[in-house]
């Protein structure tokens, strides 16, 4: 088992390297000249070239990439053009908020989707099932940002239960957390239901019943553990998606998170910051997938370790 985990983590390294190459290439080939951005318009050729040299922008692609990846390995993501601060520092300030929203959304997703999906499957073709499934259809159809605005209008503006604008408190994260949680729960609940329906038809569920176990043990122990195997993969993918997808919500709720930082930096063409934020987001998606892989092996003994 430890060997399996180690292997997964080692396999993550080439993916991360490839990711840095892609992110770097995007910014290298992206239109827009960072030098004129730093120097401003109307500079002499000498000044322009000295800035180019200072940032190493006169070097060929491969040399620049080499330098980039070396500094990334040392934990240096460059200096913000606008704020003249290390990018890593700016990300460190913003990341916790994004992680908190994402995690809260993730927990809400799980807490709603699993029981709803299981009960809908057990009570297939009953009123509860129909209610659940039409609810999820609605949840899938509603975009996260729109649900965010709706929640903001009802619970913050009308009912005044939550602050409208970001004040940095934990309370402020609840609404965006629900916006993420509810939309993701919709898709996940459907997955849980169909996975559960599939498992409930299996012979081993009948065997469990023939042993005289409580129906609860049959459903929540024997069936659910099997039904969760495909859900874990899905949730791993969703976790990354949730983190990346909170960009719009951070703007609606004016929360100073990583997504907000990225959008602001794109608008002001602060390339090092965008690059850094993108690296962190993609890394977290990769990490989430590795975690899902490991969890997968923990739940399903048929996965070969090693």
């Amino acid at each position: 088992m430890l060997k399996y985990i180690a292997k997964r983590i080692i396999l993550m390294i080439p993916v991360l390297i490839l990711m840095t190459l892609i992110v770097f290439a995007i910014f290298y080939f992206a239109p827009g000249d960072p030098v004129s951005r730093i120097a401003g318009p109307n500079v002499t050729q000498e000044v322009y070239e000295s800035i180019q040299r200072k940032y190493g922008l006169d070097q060929p692609f491969i040399v620049q990439y080499h330098r980039f990846i070396r500094s990334v390995a040392e934990g240096d993501l460059g200096i913000s053009i606008l704020q003249h601060r290390p990018v890593i520092e700016m990300i460190k300030e913003r990341l916790p908020v994004t992680l908190q929203i994402g995690l809260l959304g993730f927990v809400i997703t799980f807490v709603i989707a699993v029981p709803a999906g299981v009960i809908a499957a057990v009570k297939k073709n009953t009123a509860f099932d129909y209610l659940c499934m039409s609810g999820t259809l609605l949840g899938i159809a509603i975009p996260t940002f729109w649900l965010g605005m709706l929640l903001l209008y009802v619970f913050a503006y009308k009912l005044r239960w939550f602050p409208i604008s970001g004040d940095g408190s934990l309370r402020q994260l609840i609404l965006p957390g629900f916006a993420i949680g509810l939309t993701n729960a919709a898709i996940t609940a459907r997955m849980v239901r169909s996975s559960m329906l599939d498992v409930l038809k299996q012979d081993y569920v009948r065997t469990a019943r023939s042993k005289g176990l409580y129906e609860k043990a049959v459903v929540y122990r024997h069936a659910l553990k099997n039904a969760l195997i495909p859900i874990i993969t899905l949730m791993g993918l969703r976790l990354g998606w949730i983190l990346g997808g909170s960009v719009a919500l951070e703007i609606i709720f004016s929360i100073p998170g990583l997504g907000r930082l990225m959008v602001d930096s794109i608008l002001s063409r602060d390339f090092p910051v965008v690059q850094g934020a993108m690296m962190v987001l993609t890394s977290s998606i990769i990490l989430a997938n590795v975690l899902a892989d490991i969890l997968y092996a923990v739940v399903d003994p048929r996965i070969k370790y090693g």
């Binding site: 299996q202 012979d203 081993y204 009948r206 065997t207 469990a208 023939s210 024997h222 553990k225 099997n226 195997i229 739940v299 399903d300 003994p301 048929r302």
Partner: peptide, 12 residues
Amino acid sequence: FQEPMTSLNPVF
């Protein structure tokens, strides 16, 4: 049961 292959729960 008839099918020993599928009658036991694979994850326990």
